[in-house]
Simulated scan of single mutants.
Amino acid sequence: MTTIKDIAREAKVGTTTVSRVINNSPKVSPKTRSRVEEAMKKLNFYPNEYARVLKSKKSNTIAVSVPSIWHPFFSEFVYHIEKELQVKNYRLLISSNNLDAHAELEFLDMIRQNKVDGIIALTYHNIDNYLSANIPFVSIDRYFKEKVAYVTSDNYHGGEIAAEELIKRGCQHLGYVSAIAPQKNDTLKRKDGFIDYAKAHNKNVATYERYEPILDYDHFFDSFFLENPNVDGLLVMNDQTALILLSYLDKKGVSVPEDLQIVGYDGFSYFEGYETTLTSIKQPIKEMAESSLKLLYGLIEGNEIGEPIILPVTFKDGKTTKPLE
């Protein structure tokens, strides 16, 4: 078995230098680090990671829990998290629990037993018991009974913007549809901002909400439009649901935006640099990822939990609303 002494001999350095390279110490020059890493590669040496973690009390590993990696907003968020972690030489553990509370709790149990430096969670489950596990924790869009660090976007103002833009484009009968999580979270403020702005401008809002998961979206939309056939401007809780709605409306022969104008919420990209053609309220996903990591790094260093970070949203004009005259 190859040892640190063998690596030191091959690289012509001391064993202390090899240990510093393994533990990512800044005290090693780039040239020496490269020589040691070449020796490790040549001798097929892999450090005992578990022993290193026990010794340093730091794993350089961050865990991220999201409801579903299939959801474009969550996958884009994780993408930016991973890019930022690579800069800091951190590794990433991901749980995509598919809205399965048991799966998420199992993941949290696992990372509590196997040391990670911190957790970022987009969660809608009851995980309050895990917030006192002495692991630095940052929440996205969700507040708890216990004070936690969290990052969100200005959901209330996003709702206001959606109502304003629909009214400016001539909508008289507004609607709001949403599949909602059982736990209270900041995204619910989208409806509040939408309704408040509409009422201030003498417009009523037809609302339709059902708890997740929605197993039959055709039935979901059938029920809404049966009750509200005159709606001509609609805010949909997120872009993913808005895209499902567009498919539904196409089957029903409803023309968008001529018959019905639609605003989604998230403003995610199909892939890097290419957004959907939906009109949407765009969340700053990259900035949300960066801010959550900044908070988490601070907690890892022992900082106190500060005030929530609330980031601004913007209107993304698309093809599901009419152009302004």
Rank of each mutant, 00 (worst) to 15 (best):
L93F: 14
D218A: 08
N155T: 07
E275Y: 11
S255T: 15
T279R: 07
F73M: 07
S29M: 14
E146L: 15
T17L: 02
L93S: 11
V78Q: 04
H201A: 14
L246N: 03
T187Y: 01
R169Q: 02
V177R: 08
E49M: 14
R9W: 07
L188Q: 14
G264F: 01
T152E: 08
D232T: 12
L131F: 14
I195Q: 10
F144K: 08
I161R: 00
G159P: 01
H80I: 06
S59N: 02
I300V: 15
A39Q: 05
Y274E: 08
D117I: 12
G159A: 03
P47D: 13
E165L: 03
I7N: 00
I135P: 03
I81S: 03
H201D: 13
K168W: 05
Y217H: 11
N204H: 14
N44P: 01
E301F: 10
S25I: 04
E49A: 11
Y150R: 05
S65Y: 04
G193T: 15
L174R: 08
M237V: 09
T241Y: 06
I214H: 10
F268T: 04
P229S: 11
L93V: 09
K55R: 12
F77M: 01
G302L: 08
K184N: 15
I310G: 08
N303F: 12
Y297M: 09
N185M: 07
L324T: 01
L105D: 10
T17C: 04
T277P: 11
L166W: 07
K41P: 13
I94V: 09
D218I: 06
